[in-house]
């Protein structure tokens, strides 16, 4: 699984992207988030701000109930910001 990070999530984790092997028992985005938190303190902190972190699966906005698999491209990022115009 490829995971991409954007904006302050990228700064906090210190990487643009990572490759993970997703355990086969994880089949929803909600389960993925719970698993992701267990990878380390930084990951837990990113998810700890979970009302502000959004997720996309294969470049589509996703919610906790969406299906997920090891072949997916996942992205974690803050809410998008248009300009101040």
């Amino acid at each position: 699984m490829k995971i991409l990070y954007f904006a302050w999530v990228r700064d906090k984790i210190g990487l643009d992207s990572e490759e993970f092997d997703l355990p086969s028992e994880i089949v929803t985005a909600g389960e993925f988030i719970e698993w992701f938190k267990t990878r380390g303190d930084t990951y837990a902190e990113v998810i700890g701000a979970s009302d502000t972190v959004k997720m996309a699966i294969n470049q589509e906005y996703a919610g906790p109930e969406n299906a997920i698999s090891n072949e997916d491209e996942v992205a974690l990022f803050p809410p998008v910001t248009g300009g101040k115009y």
Binding site: F6, A7, D11, A75, P78, V80, T81, G82, G83, K84
Partner: peptide
């Protein structure tokens, strides 16, 4: 659209929150 903005004020840089 997935765009994020970081403002640079010289000594301080910060990501802009959604409005």
């Amino acid at each position: 659209a997935p765009f994020w903005k970081k403002e640079d004020y010289g000594l301080v840089t910060e990501w802009v929150g959604s409005l």
